[in-house]
């Protein structure tokens, strides 16, 4: 792990659905933050972001977001990423509705 590098995940929106998605270790995309690849190395982060950005026909707006390790896997740090991982606070829409339905 490089020193002074805050761990990251790669996130984007699904090209057609618009839903928030996360890049996993095996190069797939998941709708759950906890499935994201937890990246602790700056060079690796750049490579994975490049990999994501190259998937123009699947994703839109890929970027690196700060993350920490939680009990279930990577968890958001900033409240914006926390909201993105759940959905809006005024309705049970977005991910949180799918999650309660499972």
């Amino acid at each position: 792990m490089s020193q002074n590098f805050a761990p990251k995940i790669v996130t984007a929106n699904h090209l057609v659905e618009g839903d928030v998605i996360y890049l996993t270790e095996n190069g797939d995309w998941s709708r759950n933050h906890s499935d994201a690849e937890f990246i602790t190395d700056e060079a690796r982060a750049a490579i994975r972001l490049g990999f994501a950005e190259a998937q123009q026909e699947r994703v839109v707006g890929a970027y690196l977001a700060d993350a920490k390790l939680g009990p279930n896997g990577p968890a958001p740090i900033h409240f914006r990423e926390d909201f993105r991982s759940r959905g809006p606070s005024n309705y049970q829409h977005g991910k949180q509705s799918e999650q309660t339905n499972v």
Binding site: N13, G18, V20, E57, V60, G94
Partner: peptide, 24 residues
């Protein structure tokens, strides 16, 4: 189908009122 990149497409969708927000 991938023939337009997001950089190419974004100004076109914005001209037609289509934004990308946090969740959708």
């Amino acid at each position: 189908d991938g023939s337009l990149t997001e950089d190419e497409f974004k100004p076109l969708r914005l001209m037609n009122g289509l934004y990308l927000q946090l969740h959708a």
